[in-house]
Design a binder for these strands. Structure first.
Length: 485
RNA sequence: GCCGCCGUAGCUCAGCUGGUAGAGCAGCGGGCUUUUAACCCGAAGCGCGCAGGUUCGAGUCCUGCCGGCGGCACCA
């Protein structure tokens, strides 16, 4: 990682020493009064070619390019908001300062006082009247024109990606916008943001394997949460009525273009609402996000989105009727008889087979957002029984671009039914299902206290950002994705 | 875990059917007062991911390993 030829590093260190010898602090403490480059540009749009102004600004950023002229040079300075050209003239700065300025390296952090003018080709430029090194850079930056292309380096050393590639900066600014818009949507609709434990004595709320850790003082195993679901519903039991939490969940599973072991999820719970209300909220929230980030991608995110029953979607894509084959034996026979579906049947139980059909034949076909609704009860230990469909629960998942990005249901609030569901999970766990839910008596007791009818939603932020930014890999939208050592 | 593709200078990339490694940018020295991937001159910089093997000779062919990407599996 730090195997650069020593002469490249030595040259920068030599300049560092030279600065110190000249009495210049290469790492000053502050630089007050900086204006964003974009703000300077916005204030002077439409200058005529060669037009001078008497407007002065102080800007700061990283030195990105230099076109030297001996007694005059042009430099490019980049900050978070944009890039601006600087003009350095020997007769303005004096020879000594000019020499110091030209002795800087690409990548150095630089503060500049300058006067706005337009170059003779019309480019907005700051004529440098004074400058200060704000931090010496001791390593060479990525290529000034090609940026940093190598995917591995971009992800392992995101700071280089961010400094070299404007698109990377924009993407993570967009990500921030997605999150603040979601918060804004929920805040403005009466939801209270809460924080529940990340370290949990018992994990739950999703079908997944957890990470484990150890608390020394308590001398006990703890789990990193796989979902916020159960604690949030306890908040609803307590009367907070509309709550949400936005943060990291952790699932001990493989990496893929759609999975990172730690990922960001927002879950919200709304008392006196059901999954139909939740669908409307998801549509509204996504539409709000799309508007805020100026979405111009390939999908039509405009509400309302189609609602398709899971069984119907599977029937449409495979010709297999899961409702007519409600047990493992007949479903296996139907799959094997089908010429449109081919699955590893093996020892998979009925719900698992349904899930397989969904993820293999339905999910990849979906482009524009769709709600797949009404799931088999076996796949959904926390969802409430469907009010009219036997064996189903009131649950939906939202899909877009070939992947799921939200999961929601009318929450099961009958404690006795919940207890039976947990017992079933325990049976599955004992049968070897490593993702089965552990029994959570504390949660059941909370339900016994009485939880109002409630709709709950979990929405994957990373995947939503992927959709908004048109990225096909989650690693592109996570600053520091998990990678091998 | 399995399959395929990839790994050459700090960065971006060439390198044919095996003949002993190059360019641009960056860096170094010099020139240049309106450049825009500035330009011009000069001198440098590569154990070709790692380890073996085949061969007179390997960046190039073979095997294993490491890392990345994509897919499958696992998994929401």
């Amino acid at each position: 990682m730090s195997e650069e030829p020593s002469d490249l590093l030595a040259a920068r260190r030599a300049k560092l020493e030279r600065m110190r010898e000249q009495g210049v602090d290469p790492f000053p403490h502050d630089y007050p009064g900086v204006t964003a480059i974009a703000e300077v540009a916005a204030a002077h749009a439409g200058l005529a070619d060669g037009e001078e102004t008497d407007a002065s600004y102080r800007v700061a950023g990283r030195l990105a390019a230099r076109r030297g002229q001996g007694k005059m040079a042009f430099l490019d300075l980049v900050d978070r908001s944009g890039r601006i050209q600087l003009q350095a003239k020997s007769d303005v700065l004096g020879e000594e300062a000019m020499e110091r300025l030209l002795d800087l390296d690409l990548g150095d952090l630089l503060g500049v006082d300058g006067t706005v003018f337009a170059s003779r080709t019309g480019e907005l430029t700051l004529r440098v009247t004074d400058f200060a090194v704000l931090a010496k850079s001791l390593r060479p930056p990525p290529d000034k024109h090609h940026g940093l292309q190598d995917v591995e380096t971009r992800q392992r050393r995101r700071e280089l990606d961010l400094m070299a590639n404007e698109e990377a900066r924009e993407l993570f600014m967009t990500r921030a916008k997605v999150i603040s818009t979601l918060r804004g949507y929920l805040d403005s609709h009466g939801f209270v943001e809460v924080e529940t434990p990340v370290l949990q004595p018992l994990y739950g709320g999703a079908l997944a394997r957890p990470f484990t850790t150890h608390h020394n003082a308590l001398d006990r195993e703890l789990y990193l949460r796989i979902a916020t679901e159960l604690y949030l519903k306890r908040c609803v039991v307590g009367g907070l009525e509309r709550v949400y939490e936005l943060g990291k969940d952790f699932r001990n599973e493989g990496l893929s273009t759609k999975h990172n072991p730690e990922f960001t999820m927002v879950e919200w719970y709304e008392a006196y609402a059901d999954y139909s209300d939740a669908m409307a909220r998801v549509e509204q929230a996504v539409a709000a996000v799309a508007g805020a980030v100026g979405y111009e991608g390939e999908y039509d995110l405009t509400p309302p989105w189609p609602r398709i029953a899971l069984a119907q979607a599977v029937l449409d894509e495979t010709g297999i009727d899961i409702r007519a084959n409600p047990d493992r034996e007949s479903l296996v026979a139907a799959i094997e008889a089908s010429d449109r579906a081919e699955l590893e049947v093996e020892d998979h139980a009925w719900p698992k087979l349904v899930d397989d059909l969904l993820s293999k034949y339905v999910e990849p076909k979906i482009t524009n957002p769709v709600f797949i609704i009404d799931y088999p009860v076996e796949l959904s230990p926390f969802a409430k029984r469907h009010r009219s469909e036997e064996g189903l629960v009131e649950r939906f998942e939202a899909f877009c671009g070939g992947m799921e990005f939200a999961n929601a249901f009318s929450e099961l609030n009958d404690p006795d039914e919940q207890r039976r569901r947990f017992e079933e999970q325990v049976r599955l766990g004992e049968a070897g299902d490593e993702e089965a839910q552990p029994y959570d008596e504390g949660y059941v007791e909370a339900l016994e206290q009485g939880m109002p009818p409630t709709a709950g939603v979990g929405l994957g932020i990373d995947r939503l950002v992927m959709i908004m930014c048109g990225k096909s890999s989650i690693r592109e939208v996570v600053l520091f994705p998990a990678m091998r050592d």
